[in-house]
Design a binder for these strands. Structure first.
Lengths: 351, 351
DNA sequence: CTGAAAGCGCTTACAG
DNA sequence: CTGAAAGCGCTTACAG
């Protein structure tokens, strides 16, 4: 009782519900369905004459292969699962966009699902994607255990970001968080700052730990003592950056500069300073990390470390495609670099 | 030659590549495959005994129906296409997230594709989604013509936002852009402002036109003359807001307040003012529209009109689900409301 | 280089 | 209430 109306004009004009099948193409071009299938998949060499006839028939009939039949028969779906933490995050959004572009170009469709930083939800995402029989998965950060990931890679190629992990059919990919944080801190040190507050991320995540280490390494290199009281843990969201500064101020800590482990927390920190009547960069210098699109449009424009989530997404997609093709990916995210904007300035000479 | 390893432990522990089929479930529970299928789909009443046996078998074997086989045989994919303009947009991101949540809850999977405000790409999105045989589509704004949309609705249920359109199996849904813009302008007028600049969107889009009309209506109601020189068209992105203000300033226009037709342009406008040494709200009041998550964290926090893309996404998803179920959706987005924050203040008494 | 045939895992009239 | 059977639209060994 399908309500679906068969389009009278067979033309694919509207991109509508084409009902043309491979068998019809075969009949129209006088060859067997097998041959048509082979052409479609590049599975075998076919005589030029037949090839031409088939191509014409396909074009005339407006044939579009049915992915479900294809998937059922061929054992693949040409869809790949992408687990992200929040589809509306400014950071992941850029990565997703790059993944989408890259995958489509290769004939795959991404299936995005969000884990919301919640292990239980993330597990559900994995199950959903498995149920959908995706051909592979890209996991952007998240809280899945290394073991879960290895298990997953047992049944399909997997690319994961945000951690280092070696396993068959599994490729991991990450920014150099340590180096990025080191760079940011060095920048502040070079400007003469010595009392540098650090707003970090959740210490349970590897990237957060690495960023803290980068901060400490830079201090050490410069011979500046590490001061635990100047370090506050946030959760990478604006409000946590704001809260961190309020806490520091309430405790009466003194600092001339702040390094926030991501831009979103830097935005929150800037707001907290503003509400307290402190100006950036006149009273306090501020550095973020990630270089979100918004970083260039805040007041003042934020000095930050460029990490290109877009690039990460692209590399992850390409790596998965290589895995899918049976190859061994080698991807090297470009090294982090400082985007010097208006939120930092040399420390005013001490009176 | 599948490289895929059959998992030795049949448990679905890893959510891995389950190989259990409906036939196996049927065999294990001593009924026919047809009966198992019926239970799965709630297609028929089955005796309690058999039902229990089947449920047990499903649980024990860890059976998960293969969506492709299901789609092929049943004529549906349980996937629905979502055309968005940019997956990394702060505005659409929130809508996508809501759509994802709503659709998953109903057993459907969203397939997100981005049109990038480009009619050609959008058409490609439609084709891709049709090729994937989605059961329905949600189109967030965009440049597809009304006719294209009607054609599409010929072959499947469609929900579209950003315009008013009536057609069978088609439901359209939108914010009250006119009212929102009117509210924003009224707010500024109530604060005593009379010279109010307006940064609009692309006049080719209905929502942009409506926002401009709302602005004009409010002025008219207040007996304030409309001044074309105070109106600049942007493209809803930060840089266009910045450029608009620069242009106004370069032309020497005088204004004590600005209404930007969306938050992103308001952010850009704020930056342009800042670079010129003008302060918000001391020198110029600024109102945006949309109430992006970031609006509350800018300096100063932005007064804006709350539009809830999240709500729009939810309503769109629900409407499509109703269409899919053969029902007639009725969705009423809540009315826009003013979020009064720190970027606006009463006009200083004229000297 | 190319067919005929079986099969992928479900659903759905069709008959009890 | 429940089977047996055909079929959804492809792909892929298996034989030429």
């Amino acid at each position: 009782m399908a309500t679906r109306k068969a389009s009278k004009t067979a033309s694919a004009a509207a991109g509508g519900g084409t009902k043309v099948t491979l068998d019809m193409v075969a009949a129209a071009s006088g060859v067997s369905p097998s041959t048509v299938s082979r052409i479609l998949n590049g599975t075998a060499v076919v005589s030029a004459a037949k090839r031409a006839a088939i191509d014409r028939a396909i074009a005339e009939l407006g044939f579009v292969p049915n992915p479900m039949a294809r998937g059922l028969a061929g054992g693949r779906t040409l869809s790949i699962g992408v687990i992200t933490q929040a589809i509306d995050s400014p950071f992941y959004g850029a990565a997703l966009r790059a993944i989408e572009t890259e995958l489509h170009a290769a004939g795959y469709s991404p299936l995005f699902v969000s884990g919301h930083w919640n292990p239980v939800e993330e597990k559900r995402c994995v199950d959903l994607l498995c149920a959908r029989r995706v051909d592979g998965m890209i996991v952007l950060d998240g809280a899945l255990s290394d073991d879960q990931l290895r298990n997953l890679a047992d049944s399909m190629p997997v690319v994961v970001t945000g951690r280092k992990l070696r396993a068959p059919r599994l490729y991991s990919l990450d920014f150099d968080h340590f180096e990025g944080a080191r760079l940011a801190t060095q920048h502040l040190l070079a400007l003469g700052h010595r009392q540098i507050a650090f707003i970090g991320g959740d210490p349970l995540h590897a990237d957060a730990t690495l960023r803290l280490r980068g901060y400490r390494a830079a201090l050490k290199e410069a011979g500046v003592r590490y001061h635990a009281a100047l370090v506050v843990a946030g959760d990478y969201r604006e409000t946590s950056g704001q809260a961190a500064i309020e806490q520091l101020l309430a405790r009466g800590e003194r600092f001339s500069a702040i390094f926030a482990a991501n831009d979103q927390m830097a935005f929150g920190a800037a707001l907290a300073l503003h509400l307290r009547g402190l100006r950036v960069p006149d009273d306090v210098s501020l550095v973020g990390m990630d270089d979100l699109a918004a970083a260039a449009h805040t007041i003042p424009p934020l000095t930050t470390i460029h990490q290109g989530p877009q690039e990460l997404g692209r590399l992850a997609a390409i790596a998965l495609l290589q895995l899918l093709a049976g190859g061994t990916p080698v991807a090297t995210p470009s090294t982090p670099r400082l985007m010097h904007r208006a939120s930092t300035r040399p420390l005013a000479a001490p009176v």
